[in-house]
Amino acid sequence: MIKKFLYLNRKAPYGTVYALESLEVVLIGAAFDQDVSLAFIDDGVYQLTKAQNTDDIGMKNFSPTYRALGDYDVNKIFVDGGSLEERGLTVDDLLPLTYEDEDDDWAEKPSIRVVDSGELAALIDEQDVIFSF
């Protein structure tokens, strides 16, 4: 049985463990061949920002791991445009996440789609299982 799983990431990457432990679920869950989407809203959009540097806070910078998501066939990544805008960010501030599309001769394509709150609501509505971290 294939279900639609959505991981809703709401929190900054550091400050709490939620972002890291969410990513751990995504990576393990990828082995189950489900229909997986990730959404980043509120401070969660900071999880995907480029050039994170944690040297001075003694935390592990786990952001490079997001770049591996494409290799795990996790390529539906939705970012709330309103949350980006509120924080003075654009999609250019985010990691350039990509995947290779097996249905299109393995062409490299962007995984991130910026959506508005209406599209997010529709996305949430169509899910079977939602993990909110």
């Binding site: 049985m1 279900k3 799983f5 751990e24 679920v25 393990i28 869950g29 082995a31 189950f32 489900q34 079977d128 299982v129 939602i130 993990f131 909110s132």
Partner: peptide
């Protein structure tokens, strides 16, 4: 046990309540 047990619960249950 591992996180796979969480995913499996999501798959098997009619409702996953967090």
């Amino acid at each position: 046990s591992g996180l796979g047990q969480l995913i499996e619960a999501g798959i098997e249950a009619d409702r996953l309540v967090v």
